[in-house]
Every structure is written in C-alpha cells, then in structure tokens.
Design a protein around this nucleic acid. Sequence first.
DNA 1: CTCCAAATCTAGACAATGTAAAGATTGTAG
DNA 2: CTACAATCTTTACATTGTCTAGATTTGGAG
Lengths: 209, 209
Amino acid sequence: MPRKTYHHGNLKNALIQAGIAILAEEGLGGLSLRKAARRAGVSHAAPYAHFADKQNLIAAIASDGHKKILERFETIRVKYPDNPLRQLAAGAWAYVKFGLQAPDHYRITFSGVIQDEHSHAEFIEYSQRNMQVLREIIAQCRSAGVLDADGVDSELQAVSIWGLLHGLTLLMIQKQLPSQLIKTCPPKDIVLSALQQMARISINKRMLD
Amino acid sequence: MPRKTYHHGNLKNALIQAGIAILAEEGLGGLSLRKAARRAGVSHAAPYAHFADKQNLIAAIASDGHKKILERFETIRVKYPDNPLRQLAAGAWAYVKFGLQAPDHYRITFSGVIQDEHSHAEFIEYSQRNMQVLREIIAQCRSAGVLDADGVDSELQAVSIWGLLHGLTLLMIQKQLPSQLIKTCPPKDIVLSALQQMARISINKRMLD
DNA sequence: CTCCAAATCTAGACAATGTAAAGATTGTAG
DNA sequence: CTACAATCTTTACATTGTCTAGATTTGGAG
C-alpha cells in the first residue's frame, strides 16, 4: 500500500526499525538499504536523505542496540537500588539475554563498524554510558565489600567482566560452544558459573533475574 | 601477467591465500569472490570449481584461522612440556596476539558463518581440536595443583576462559575498550590481569611469552 | 598409446545491491 | 505568499554472487 503523503513523516526511524526487523527475520546477510526502504514504503534512494551510506544506517541500528541494553541496566538499577551485587548479577544476565533474544541485532551492535571517534556521536555516547553504568555498579559492589578488589584496578575489573560476558554471548549466539555442554547446561548456568569464577562473588541463579 | 598454463595448478589454496591477503589489506568489507579470483589470476567464475559459494571460501579461510591458532598452541606445548600453567598463560596470549596481528582474519574465523554441523567438516575439526587443547591444558593445571578447581566443572572453566579471551580480543580489535584504558595499559597487561582475575593463578608478564 | 570422462577454467548473462545525479514535491522561515 | 531547504522519486552505473554453456586439460581405463 502506497503512502498517502509524499513525505513519509518519520522515515529515519522507520528505516531503523525496518533494519532491526530484517535482522530478526533474515539475519545479518539479509540486511540491505534497498530492502529497508521497501519495508518503509519508499523508493530505494530515499534513505540517502537520512543516512549518508549503509554504514550510517548500521551505526544507527547499533546505537539502538546500545540504548536497549542501557534501558535494561537502568531498569535493574531502580529495581534493586541498594543491592549492587544483585545489580551486577541481574545486569550481566540481562546483557547476555539481549544477545540471545536478538542475536543479529546484538552482533551488529558490537560488530565494530564504528572506527572514527568523531562520526556516529550517538553510538559513542550510548556505548560510553553503558561502560559507565558497569563501572558504577562495580564501584558500589567494592564499597559494599561484596566484590573483591584484590589489588585489581577497577577499570581492569570492569573491562574483564565485560569481555567475559561479550565473549560468552557471541559464542552462544553462534553455537560455537561444545555441543556436549549446550545439551546439559542452559545459558543461564553458563553465565552464572562464569561470573562466579571471574568475580568470586556469592550469587545464586535467582539473583540473575 | 597471465598464467602460462590453462590450469592454475593450486587454485583452491591460492584463493584462500588471496582472501587472507584481502582481509589484511582491505578488511572484511573488501572480501569478494571476484577480487580473490583476480588476485589468483583466474576468471571470476573459476572459484566455483573449488567452492560451492562465497560462504565456502569464507569457511576455508576460517578453518585456516583455527589451524594457525592450533599451531601456536602446539608450539607452546612442546616449548613448555612440563609446565601446564605456563602453557595456559602463553597459549592465552598467543591466542589474543593472533587476533591483534590479523584482526579481520580472526574476526572471520569466529564470525559464526558455520551453522550447519555437517558441512565445513574441516572447520569443525580444527575448532574442536582447539577446544580439546584448552581442555587438556586446564586438566593438567588442575592435576598439578596450579589451578583452582573450586567446585567448578572443568568444561565450564574452559568455556569461561575461552569466552573471556574471545571477548577481550574482539573488544581490543574493534577499539571498543575505553580509550583512557588503552592509553595507559597495553593489551598484554589487560590479558594478564583478566587471566589472573578469572583463574586466580600466579603468573607474571614474562610467562605470557 | 589412445580416447573419453571428469576436473578445471572462460565467457556471457542476470538479478540484487550501494550509491551518485537530476529533478519533483512538500514544508517552512521570513 | 514566496523562496529555500528538506524530502522523496527516477534513472543510471559499477560491483558483486551465481548460473549456464562451452572450451581446455588431465588422468586413467582399455
């Protein structure tokens, strides 16, 4: 069905949503500017009024991924305001869960399309805020004495935990973990165990929710 | 310069090497079947005698990545035959270093192109052997008492360490770690710290080599 | 050695894609 | 109301993945 108005009205956002939908239905390989334009009901060159090139659409989709992760973090922080350890546990699981629920959206979010520090300001912004949230949670855990400092710089601790979660998420998404393990051990248990090994914290499965 | 013989002689391998070279020079986005064919000095359809489609060339390149990582592991194992802890430390760093030296080769190796378990037998083979090596090193560390078992299933321990290294490698490759940290802390220190946090092992920087 | 089938390579074609250019339509600031 | 800027369409072109038909070469059966 063709549009009534010549102008779409909200094309930029429609293209981002179309892109996310394509990722969900057809995966990374199915994403194209023209297909997104078709879904939004505009001509194949219309996107160029809003995105300089395909990379910029991808950057916008990646920003949206970071934003969604950030929202989940914020939700958890207000849910357990005075329990930083639970924030850490639940936040970690929420992060991984986003990856499992929207695998290709997650992958594109961390696909490393953004090299230039100056372009894609929104992406940089959200990405840094996510890192900042993790830093804060870890700082609070340390202050509360529920997370070992152990002479480890807290920045290095944050980066290590993030790296761990990121790596496991990708390996799970891409089915690269030993099939033996996958059959006997649900993702949640893998994350729980990994977190305990890394941070030596006393958490249980319930605290991931 | 055109070939002398009608038949290339070793086209399959030449295409793989061409692909790896393209990855090094132009990155993931620059890789195309036709470009690889051009480099090998054959027509654009010649690759189809050796690879059913582009995915199969990618799978072959990914297999090569796994093979190179495996070779590094083996080298380290014969270098420190009776020091499993050092095998773990040096192996971990060798893994990350491969990612830093050949970022896009590393990325394509773990890009998750292989979904079907039955196709791409070579990839599955190498991938499993890499996992097996890590398992063995960890088992030896445990037996030698230089790595805490701590009630953690050894498969989960292996997967966690792998996830950690994989995640950190990607974040470093894609420059997604806080720029503040990058400026003050070389990759080697990041890996060393992460390993110590995860496995609570007593290793120093020298042992990574 | 001969000859044929299989393996390998070329040439040509097609659809999909990213993207540039030129022009049409619409919203809006003055 | 009008001129300008933003938005959108149409047309066009190069690149790419992949298919088909045919040419060349190789290896092995007889």
